[in-house]
Amino acid sequence: MHFRDLSWAALNALFLITLAGCSSQGKPTISPSPATDTEVVLATPLQVSYQSELALARLGQLLSSSELNNEQRAELFYERGVVFDRVGLRTMARIDFTRALRERPDFAEAYNFIGVYLTEQQSFDEAYDAFDSALELMPDYDYAYLNRGIALYYGGRTKLAVKDLAEFYRHKPEDPYRVLWLYLAESKLDPKMAFQELQRRYNQRHSDEWGWRIVAVFAGKQGIDQFLQGVEQESRDNRELAERLCEAYFYFAKLSQLQGNDDKAVNYFKLSLANNVYDFIEHRYARLELQLLAPQGDGRDDEDDAG
């Protein structure tokens, strides 16, 4: 799922400087994978594009101007942070989002990004504060509900995570990714009830939108092998295939965890990362999941907040 939390100004600016992803157009392949007991579809990993590099250079030139006011400088720092994030330079992105907040302390989108980075670092209390700030400034910012819900999920505060992810789902119940994240949180509280709710939401809302096919796998309507054959055949190009595989392998990893197979989950998380789709939340949290599944990553106890 794309990290869709750009401001309209940022989107317009990025469009004007023709920011676009670029990838090698290698032919996708299917390879047997003993590690996952199934075949896997592989895309050529996405590469940083010339347009992205040019965008960074242009934004740097604009930021060197002494004629900018605080509002303009904050917007440019934010836009450059988005580009840094898109190409996987997260430290540089976080620095620019912090600079944007110094110029404009009421920048909700920047708080949201900062919260995501803090979640990735497992600095959960600080992440909650960042998302709280975003929502205080923009109460209808539904992606802040998603990201705070994910932070609460990984921070072991599942009841609060369900509350936020249910709010995110309520804003657009026809979105399959909202169904998936709500299910992942609910399944930590009551697996049987969560599965029943997943099937109910699938039956009520599913459509031809591609993400519903991932939900169909979770709901037992389709097998992973059948899914992977379809994704290779229906992807228009290597970029779309890489993006879809980044998403699918992440959720298949989560499904493997629910089935008690952490070894298979590890391999799926690695396959998700292999596509280099840095700005998808599935890529972000595949990295975190691998840290948590490592031998030293044993801080996953689910201690719900009394609220």
Rank of each mutant, 00 (worst) to 15 (best):
G299E: 00
L271G: 04
P295F: 07
F3S: 13
V231A: 04
R104T: 07
I17H: 06
S49L: 11
D85V: 10
E197L: 08
S52D: 10
D142Q: 11
I95H: 12
L293Q: 07
G81P: 08
W210G: 13
F77E: 03
D208K: 11
N147E: 07
F252G: 14
P173S: 05
F269R: 14
Q222M: 15
L241F: 12
Y154R: 12
Y50C: 06
E67T: 11
T36F: 01
E232F: 00
G155N: 05
Q229C: 00
K172C: 14
D305F: 05
Y128F: 12
L118H: 04
R244S: 05
L228D: 14
E75P: 14
E174W: 02
Y78I: 00
F195G: 02
I95L: 13
Y78T: 07
I30T: 13
A286C: 05
S24Y: 07
D190Q: 08
K264V: 14
V231E: 15
R200M: 04
A265P: 09
L290S: 00
Y143E: 06
L54P: 03
A185P: 01
A144N: 02
N203R: 01
L59K: 13
L273D: 02
F3L: 09
R90D: 10
D142K: 10
E174P: 04
R239H: 08
I224S: 12
S187L: 02
P34W: 02
A253S: 04
F97D: 03
P105G: 11
G223M: 15
L19E: 09
L14H: 01
A74Q: 00
K27Q: 10
F168I: 00
E209I: 08
G220H: 07
S65F: 14
Y111K: 08
N261I: 06
L68M: 07
W181M: 05
G260E: 03
A219T: 04
S272N: 03
G223S: 15
M92K: 15
F84E: 12
I281Y: 11
D225P: 04
L255M: 10
V215P: 03
L137V: 09
P191F: 07
